[in-house]
Design a binder for these strands. Sequence first.
DNA 1: CGCACTATGAGCGCTAGCGTACAGAACTTT
DNA 2: AAAGTTCTGTACGCTAGCGCTCATAGTGCG
Lengths: 239, 239
Amino acid sequence: MLPIDDPLQNHLLAALSADEYARISPHLESVPLPLGHVLYESGRELRHVYFPTDSIVSLLYVMLDGASAEVAVVGNEGIIGVALFMGGETMPNRAVVQSAGHAYRLPGQLLKQAFQDSIALQHLLLRYTQALLTQMAQTAVCNRHHSLDQQLCRWLLLSRDRLSSDELLMTQELIANMLGVRREGVTEAAGKLQEAGLIHYHRGRITVVDRAGLEARSCECYAVVKREYDRLLPEIADT
Amino acid sequence: MLPIDDPLQNHLLAALSADEYARISPHLESVPLPLGHVLYESGRELRHVYFPTDSIVSLLYVMLDGASAEVAVVGNEGIIGVALFMGGETMPNRAVVQSAGHAYRLPGQLLKQAFQDSIALQHLLLRYTQALLTQMAQTAVCNRHHSLDQQLCRWLLLSRDRLSSDELLMTQELIANMLGVRREGVTEAAGKLQEAGLIHYHRGRITVVDRAGLEARSCECYAVVKREYDRLLPEIADT
DNA sequence: CGCACTATGAGCGCTAGCGTACAGAACTTT
DNA sequence: AAAGTTCTGTACGCTAGCGCTCATAGTGCG
């Protein structure tokens, strides 16, 4: 059993060879990620990349009028800050902590260097980025075609997978912000799911009771994304 | 003035150094891309990558029930087949010709090799991929929050930019499929735009009359995406 | 214990876009 | 010229989700 806050809880870090890991591990720094904390602000310079361990971070776009929508979610399977090794340096999305926990961060320069020096790391990060690409594409599709009910199922499953726990600490208000819908809409949809015995929730604490039921009720988007993550990053498949 | 069908009409190819270009140009093969042609089918093996010159290709996800939604659009600023150098080999999106024209294709193996060998090419393609990432993210946001009117404006502008021509050959039916909406909805929205004097259309031929007007009527999504493309790929800025 | 705050529930009118059906107009083929 | 096909316009009832408002029930704190 790993300690509560171990870098290797992050699957990308865990997938590194002993050599690679030895090289960067001295520079890894543990940071607590409180709920709502903004890890990265749209368009800003990226100083560090973050490897979540037991936290979840949402990438969202915030519109001029303040409304927002999540475009992807990152947990211990991934990394925040792909723009660094992709060469763009910045990106137009905010990164917000959606489920409190921890992450390890690494100075951007070090990651860039490692990316150049190690083909294996490069391949790993690029495959992760492709998975992220798929997640974003599927979010677009889901936003277009699927009902709030279905989207909520997808979202709960994505969160559950990334925490490896059936208990999620998040209010309906927060979920509404992520999905870019009304809070009341989430209340209603969540009510139906509870009615159906798939989840149980109470004041900011959601428990997934029937995971298979959620999958059945979700749209295909969840499965498509999960399949791509599993295919592209076999080293992380566990849930 | 470039000849009608010159590889250098593709901005990525044009951005290569003389050396790099000399190395791959013997393997470039011109292919005509008729309207509706499926360049790549979801999940299939990728034999070639395609560099559009005077055509536009849509990446779309096709759902189990047959409904579809575009997740990104690629023209002469880009390349079809990022999954090859990203390491995933396949992706869950179909690539369909949305505006007829031509592209140059290159055997996948050759591109992979070139990607490994040339840092400059690598950086170029990764920056392009990041721009694509932004486009997908913004599509997700747009699908969530913006009206069909606004989305149509965005879409017309994206197409116009990629053709460098005010005349687009596409039916409302086609546009509806891309946007993932009803054909009647497009008829109505396009009617309003024509009413307002921004476009003129007639049986599959749309003319952008007032480009600035379209931008003003579009949501911020168009501008966000355009700004990122211009920033990440300065060598392509022309429109 | 009482008070303030936070999370959830519920109601109501409104609108965008859907599904469907049909009609006319323009272009193509014979 | 006639017939068929493709594209566009119009209409109508329907539903999901919005914006808003207010009520209730837990929770934490002085």
